[in-house]
Write a protein that binds this DNA or RNA. Structure first.
Lengths: 120, 120
DNA sequence: CCGCATCCGTTACGATACTG
DNA sequence: CAGTATCGTAACGGATGCGG
């Protein structure tokens, strides 16, 4: 499958809306988070990441993120086994956004989620 | 319904994960965007916003965002008719994140979505 | 074993009709 | 105007199977 933006139904021409068409789900940004925090990680390593994503969802998300070039395989033309994923420039550019989400949550979600980590 | 964080199943203690437990969907941040761009807006005005959210989804999201204090009604104890929603401090604090999403999309989604607005 | 794909029950979403 | 009720569809989530 060599499609790219075809997989996405862009709701409008608004850039914010378009960003959410790609990242507006519960898993994509967590995958990016794991790759940014730990460096390259394999499929199985990503499966073990704290929150519990199921196998089919992870595979689907990884394919989408690869097709949109937010992440890539370390060895492009090797077989999947132990061929870790890493962020591209596009994915790495999301780091400030993830940091901002963390700060926002610590400030404004504290009263609703007392167990949340205070320092990252 | 006077619940708050009970409505949310927090997946982990990670602040990023927790932020996405609240905002990790296709509509919540778009509602915040509309309120930040246009100021207070009524239910019907929000319904008319470019992307087409359906009535039940909007009502559900508004209730969740109110319960988590990201938005509030202009006149707390008045009836719903013409009682617009506005962002609280919590919701307003998301403005830099939305701006960052816009910039990211314009830079990295351009090749997949040529019609996207270049300037906001 | 690792990296998925498939099957299937459950949940969320989305469009439309309808109500106070 | 501001929602709720209903119902069909799509996405999710867990279990399992299977090739390399």
């Amino acid at each position: 499958m060599e499609d790219a933006g075809q997989g996405i139904d862009w709701r409008s021409v608004c850039p914010i809306s378009s960003a959410l068409d790609v990242l507006g789900d519960k898993w994509s940004l967590l995958i990016i988070r794991d790759l940014l925090m730990h460096g390259p990680r394999t499929y199985t390593q990503l499966l073990g990441s704290g929150e519990h994503i199921s196998t089919n969802i992870l595979a689907t998300r990884l394919n989408l993120l690869v097709s949109l070039k937010l992440i890539e395989r370390m060895v492009p033309d090797a077989k999947a086994r132990n061929n870790a994923f890493r962020v591209t420039e596009s994915g790495a550019a999301l780091r400030p956004i993830l940091d901002a989400f963390a700060g926002w949550a610590q400030t404004y979600l504290d009263e609703f989620h007392a167990d949340m980590l205070k320092i990252v």
